[in-house]
Design a protein around this nucleic acid. Structure first.
Lengths: 201, 201
DNA sequence: CGATTTTTGAATCATTTAGTTCGAATTACC
DNA sequence: GGTAATTCGAACTAAATGATTCAAAAATCG
């Protein structure tokens, strides 16, 4: 059993670290990195300024943590959508649908923290992280194609690598259009058509 | 004939307006909007601060003008790539290749001002402009598909609207990967494969 | 040359911003 | 209850940033 919150001495925090981090994700997501001030974070997270610095460090450190947290959750949900026991076509559609619903979720900003805001951050560590995340996503789709070959859903000469890249490029396009304000309904339809496109008829 | 530079009284400028605007495009392109300070622009454009304000207005006005100039040129080059007298397959490949070369051009930042930086600007006019630009791009590809139908290159029941959206989504994906640092060579290969993907075998 | 027009460079102003400090508040431990 | 530990809120500092002002410079026109 994991040890739960050790009772600490001193005045207790009046916020949950994880909840505050979620709020931080929202703030960065909606305003970008350079567009966010520490005041924005203080207001949006419901955390006092000194607490913010003492617990999360400066703006850059907080952003990196927000990015990792966001990517971890999104990666898990993506893997779930993609690797559930469905037909290959349905797995791809499910992945693209999740991309769309996540990018058009009310209650969050549109688009995607990883695709729409992080790439603009001029920071070597952020870039490295993004490259790894992208590589992991491609690998996930490739894995699904491979298991489709094993299951006989697609021929063994199916161009796995090329198609996986195309699936992700299509997902990127859908995400960008979500950020531009295209409706979820329209994008969900496009997601289905995209899933059909990458598979042989 | 358009009247050329009227000889104006007073001290002449020591910069060309168009050249300065090009520099401004580069600055915004590489640093985003919020990430750019007026000092960055002054340094990058080779224009004094008062001159900058008197000629281009404030930062937002300058950005809008840079955006329009960039989009105009890119739109013209895109139309050129797409509507040149080639086979449909070659037109699409040419469009996607141009997307890649422009997004991986040394001497400019990676990616694309319209796709990678403008969407983050929280400004109604910018958003409206982006929507229009995107719609124009889709219309262009649709036109090319239509003329492909007329020429008998694709069947008359070809799903023009859906495929046009997919072509643009693929272009968006290629552009984003360019910004992430994927090599031009790799992306050009992917562009060819993307062109093949959207056409019937 | 002298008057006029326009641009330039430097200095300046007011505001915003990142980051810190410090006393008051709130809790656990004894 | 008293003390130590921890957090909170507000005020503060120093640096940056957006925007303006103004005299000097540089050109044309008469």
């Amino acid at each position: 059993m994991i040890q739960k919150s050790i009772r600490r001495r001193g005045r207790p925090r009046n916020f949950k670290e994880s909840a505050a981090l979620e709020k931080a994700i929202q703030v960065f997501w909606s305003k970008g990195y350079d567009g966010v001030t520490v005041d924005d974070l203080v207001a949006g997270m419901g955390v006092g300024r000194p607490s913010l610095y003492s617990i999360f460090g400066d703006k850059r450190t907080l952003f990196l943590r927000a990015l990792r947290t966001y990517a971890e959750r999104k990666g898990a949900l993506t893997a779930n959508a993609l690797l559930s026991p469905h037909s290959l076509r349905e797995s791809l559609a499910s992945f693209l649908r999740y991309t769309v619903t996540s990018a058009t979720d009310k209650g969050s900003a549109s688009g995607c923290l990883l695709m729409c805001v992080a790439p603009l951050v001029n920071d070597a560590e952020v870039r490295r992280f993004l490259r790894n995340a992208a590589a992991a996503a491609v690998a996930l789709v490739e894995r699904r194609f491979q298991s489709g070959i094993s299951a006989g859903e697609i021929p063994s000469d199916f161009p796995v690598a090329a198609r996986a890249k195309q699936v992700l490029d299509l997902a990127r396009g859908l995400t960008m259009r979500a950020q531009m304000g295209v409706s979820r309904k329209a994008l969900l339809k496009d997601a289905e058509e995209a899933a059909d496109l990458v598979l042989p008829p």
